[in-house]
């Protein structure tokens, strides 16, 4: 809970920061498609190379990027463990009941770990380099056609933008409540699963209550600044495609093409996976 870095904007100026959020969204989707299309490690290696370039051109420090992985470490280890222990294969190293460690299992879970890490890092690159406002502007712009079927896209975008901006505030609040409970002798750490879940109640209840109070006040502050959902607003930051976006688009397209090619020509490559 202390790690607030996931999904936080990293404010520097860079090639990637300056890209259009729509293209970045497209890039992320393309990247995810590429990860799941990739049938072998070559494909993933291609994704990794592209990702390294993205990181390099975003000027986000590598440590910060790696920290994003920490948040999903448990998931990664868990998935890997399940796959190593339960996946059967031809070359079995160790077997006990339904537990079975095989070469295929190890290779497959390595594959999964790579996929997961690439996925998480690329997604957090989007949030590191794109402000929530840009992101929602991008999503709003992409979803614009839905206004035809009477879906209030811009209201949804506002809701999302506020939700995103409230994350650090609520994180801080959680930390504060947790400390307050601890200071008064609340037993929050340790204990079994049930005890842990129970310990969440005295944190969640005040958190939710305060979130409502915040929402109320924020609503007033928005009203006071002339917010009306039904009214047409202007946008200070207009989305405009530039040469950067063309490059982003081309790289994404090339990545998918590359991964497909690597799948097809796998047989001609030397590493037998």
């Amino acid at each position: 809970m202390k790690d607030v870095s996931f999904g936080q904007y990293y404010p520097v100026k860079s090639f990637v920061h300056n890209m259009d959020p729509r293209i970045k969204l497209f890039f992320l989707v393309a990247f995810i498609v590429a990860i799941f299309l990739a049938g072998n490690f070559y494909g993933l290696a291609a994704c990794l190379v592209v990702l390294i370039f993205v990181i390099a051109f975003s000027r986000v420090p590598i440590l910060k990027v790696l920290r994003a992985i920490r948040g999903v470490l448990f998931l990664v280890v868990f998935t890997a463990a399940i796959n190593v222990l339960f996946r059967t294969g031809e070359t079995v190293y160790w077997q006990y009941g339904i537990l079975c460690v095989s070469k295929e299992g190890i290779v497959f879970s390595a594959f999964l770990i790579c996929r997961l890490i690439l996925l998480v890092v690329c997604s957090s690159m989007l949030t590191y380099t794109t402000t929530p406002v840009e992101l929602t502007d991008g999503i709003e712009s992409v979803l614009k056609p839905l206004t035809w079927i009477k879906i209030p896209v811009h209201v949804l975008a506002d809701v999302m933008s506020i939700a995103l901006r409230m994350i650090p505030v609520l994180m801080e609040e959680t930390e504060r409540i947790r400390s307050a409970q601890k200071a008064r002798g609340g037993d929050i750490e340790g204990g079994g699963l049930i005890k842990k879940v129970r310990a969440l109640v005295p944190i969640l209840v005040p958190l939710i209550l305060s979130a409502f109070r915040r929402a109320d006040e924020l609503g007033d502050a928005m009203d006071a600044r002339c917010y009306m959902a039904s009214k047409k607003r202007t946008k200070y930051k207009k989305l405009r495609l530039t040469w950067r976006d063309l490059i982003g688009f081309l790289v994404a397209a090339a990545l998918i093409a590359g991964v497909v090619l690597l799948n097809v020509y796998e047989a001609f490559l030397w590493l037998p996976i």
């Binding site: 406002v133 901006r165 006040e217 502050a221 600044r225 917010y227 009214k231 047409k232």
Partner: peptide, 26 residues
């Protein structure tokens, strides 16, 4: 208002200052 954490709608200073002006359609 009172609470400094409950008034900003945007994450960045510039975007938040723009909010009201955007609302009135400037």
């Amino acid at each position: 208002f009172q609470n400094p954490d409950n008034q900003a709608v945007a994450s960045l200073v510039e975007d938040d200052v723009a909010f009201g002006a955007e609302n009135v359609g400037l």
